[in-house]
Design a protein around this nucleic acid. Sequence first.
DNA 1: GAAATAGTGTCTTTCAGACATTATGTG
DNA 2: CACATAATGTCTGAAAGACACTATTTC
Lengths: 255, 255
Amino acid sequence: MRISANVSERAKEPPNIGVSVVILALGPSDMDAHGSLSAPAGADASGNDTIPTLRIPLVCRIRQPFLGDWALPGGDLQGGRSLEFAAEQALHSTTSLHPQYLEQLYTFGDPSRSHGGLPMVSIVYWALIGETEAKDFHEAQNVRWFPVNQLPPLAFDHKDIIDYALTRVRNKIEYSDIATRLVGSEFTLSQLRNVYEAIYGRKLDPPNFRRRMLSTGMVEPTGEKLARGAHRPASLYRYAAHPGTSKPQNATARQ
Amino acid sequence: MRISANVSERAKEPPNIGVSVVILALGPSDMDAHGSLSAPAGADASGNDTIPTLRIPLVCRIRQPFLGDWALPGGDLQGGRSLEFAAEQALHSTTSLHPQYLEQLYTFGDPSRSHGGLPMVSIVYWALIGETEAKDFHEAQNVRWFPVNQLPPLAFDHKDIIDYALTRVRNKIEYSDIATRLVGSEFTLSQLRNVYEAIYGRKLDPPNFRRRMLSTGMVEPTGEKLARGAHRPASLYRYAAHPGTSKPQNATARQ
DNA sequence: GAAATAGTGTCTTTCAGACATTATGTG
DNA sequence: CACATAATGTCTGAAAGACACTATTTC
């Protein structure tokens, strides 16, 4: 790619640019039937009250440094392509999936992070993938999905990056509509609550969650009900695209 | 720098990397005596109740595209240098100043943003500079300071970038200690409130501001007082580095 | 005393969380 | 009926904002 006359000239050259993605997916509870996960953490297998877990696909490194460790999916940035495009491409080539949500996380460029490899500026995105889509995934070569609370040894500074992404998404869910993108067009408040619980990593109080969601005006009832299990059926809701009273949210707020 | 065999090969090459800075400075009210500002917006000139204004240094472009428009200070990223270093260097070469606070804002890399210039990925930082330091600045060649509410025509997407930086800093000031970095080691609550007012761009209620600041535990009284003007002297406070009860804040939170 | 800012007290609203209670379905 | 989840109601405490009021200094 790059031709240098000598070593001293090379030191002044700009580093390479890569784009990586932290992919956060709501794993379905029966994911083991499709993939090869080591730790199922589903919620509706047998009426238990565990919470759904976020899962991250990682790629096993096949060269030094960090040979055999796991790393975030990514690739070099080609000219003429947007950063989002590069992030989506890295996501799709690893998982054969498309994200419900994609946002830039941070750009990591410290020279010390290459650890003997080529100096690299990594523009990192984070993506959200819902249950429905994650069901279709097939485990590609050198790719494995891990629960966020059971991550393997990670290459470079990728552990810090994942932690940062989790901090970001847990903050963002409080003031944006990203959670509604991970459920279908019609959903019960329990389903929506499960998304929040997966991202927060803890249980939420159902009555308070209901009141909070309805008070924002972001969801509205469809009038239909969904019967699932030996209990009272739940009302279905849809995402109210443009709530009248609440203030608009965009990607820039609270970044 | 980069040697390409032909045009088609060039299209696949990575774009150049630059680092730019949105420099936000608390202009002193008598800044006109030092610089050549068009619109003074000081607060203590004659007992008025205007609020201090944030100012931004911009560089006049001396080539196409956007010849004659104003742009953010910046430069190419050299290998072996951290992104922060490049941002500080761009800041210092433009203003001869060092920032109180420096934080990465966002990386802009859309191919359409070059507008006929060379394709460029811009890693943008934002910096805060306090009154004391801004007093020392000298107006360099092609550099001028503008109040944030009276910006000139800007090159590329730099207007969007500045707006984004203002959104970020106004959010960040709510849950971080960046404001205390813009006052001296000892300060009155009025002085601290002026920093908040400059960043928010609006007046704050003094009693409520006092209560809010003291309740966080981030400031503690020194026991001394400062007499300034025909009124009751104000108590001096210092920044309490590690408040006991409040939760720790770091650069990653709420990004 | 007038003026100006420093500082205290109080009231209201809003929101989050804890938790009791009722409602409605299935086995 | 037992049981599980849906949905409503109520209480409390924290935090923010409006604003009245007192305190202390200089001119």
